[in-house]
Design a protein around this nucleic acid. Sequence first.
DNA 1: AAACGTTTTAAACGACGTTTAAAACTAAAT
DNA 2: ATTTAGTTTTAAACGTCGTTTAAAACGTTT
Lengths: 203, 203
Amino acid sequence: MARSRNTEKKIFDAATELFLEKGVDRTSVREIANKAGINLALMNYYFRSKENLFDTIFSSLVKRNSEELIRILNSDQELFEKIEQYVEVYIEMLSENPLLVSFVMAILHRSRERITEMKAISSLYATDQFTKQLLDEAKKGNIRRTDPTHFFVDMLSLIAFPFAIKMLVMDKNNFSEEEFQQFINERKKRVPKLLLDSLRPCK
Amino acid sequence: MARSRNTEKKIFDAATELFLEKGVDRTSVREIANKAGINLALMNYYFRSKENLFDTIFSSLVKRNSEELIRILNSDQELFEKIEQYVEVYIEMLSENPLLVSFVMAILHRSRERITEMKAISSLYATDQFTKQLLDEAKKGNIRRTDPTHFFVDMLSLIAFPFAIKMLVMDKNNFSEEEFQQFINERKKRVPKLLLDSLRPCK
DNA sequence: AAACGTTTTAAACGACGTTTAAAACTAAAT
DNA sequence: ATTTAGTTTTAAACGTCGTTTAAAACGTTT
């Protein structure tokens, strides 16, 4: 240990703030160093590369937010309730963390190949328990038979994509920021209803 | 006119190919110039900037592919058929044009800055006719009442998002490229069914 | 063949992420 | 108290990026 034991944290915090504010690509290492009040080279000393700094920040952010989602998905809660809760919590999480959304967008755009290497994301989609539940309930005749992979992709799409096209939706409907938030809030009930309707055996 | 009347086209073609192959950000102007067999400065001479070159390529790609989608959306076709056709054609289009997917990802990622391109995309979604149709059919009692904005967002999400998370889906399910194509193909029937089920008045 | 506008070229610019090698510093060993 | 070993910080430079510049090469028209 030496002069400053919080240099790493200073870099981390400054970068987080700048990444959120102007995006990863538009934030230079020199800016980060400046904001953190440290020498340019220290970013590489502590985080090896800007890319790795980004990954570190992103992973810690995902970790902080994903635990509840993972817990819900793997609980032995009743299927319909589980879906309702999962969707609501997921949407709320994305709603409260714009940084998370823009990070995911950045990753999907910049390194779609690399996305599976990110353990933080990968662990979010451990769907074994959920898959089993879908198949069991179908066998019991409680729900219609459905391909679990498709169902999970449907669910993720309905949850996440609206955030990706936020600007498009706002522009098309002349939404203010508040109106878009309201729109997203409505989806907390709408999306589960849509999904559950497709599972109900009735007709 | 002077020495080479197809320099512009050579740049356009080389850039298109490289952008598809390795993404916009990972393609340098020097690479484009190299592949096109032209001097570095000519890219700026003909296209002003790399960003503008990207826009040009993207716009022409969208133009080539969007006409049919717009036509379908604004036709006076019966609602259910229209949805089926729209989804199928859209998925097929994204399936055949990976470049389009990565371009859209690039634009959505920086949607705050890339307003021009956003407008280009936005024009794809003149949903007035479609909205009217949804409201009319609901009034007639043929379908359940639904918020047209939400419904359209649902539809787009189910169509497009799976392409964005392609690598994740492939990794989680150990899909080969062919198997992912098959998975996408299945969605051509699945997605319309899901959407139509949510509209049916029955239960 | 001279003048003009267009296209092409080589070289350089400033900004970027990163590396280097030495300096500054702390902590432990003599 | 001084040397030693290890860590942290620094200034300077590296190579690459997108872009600009000013001159050269060229085709066309007079």
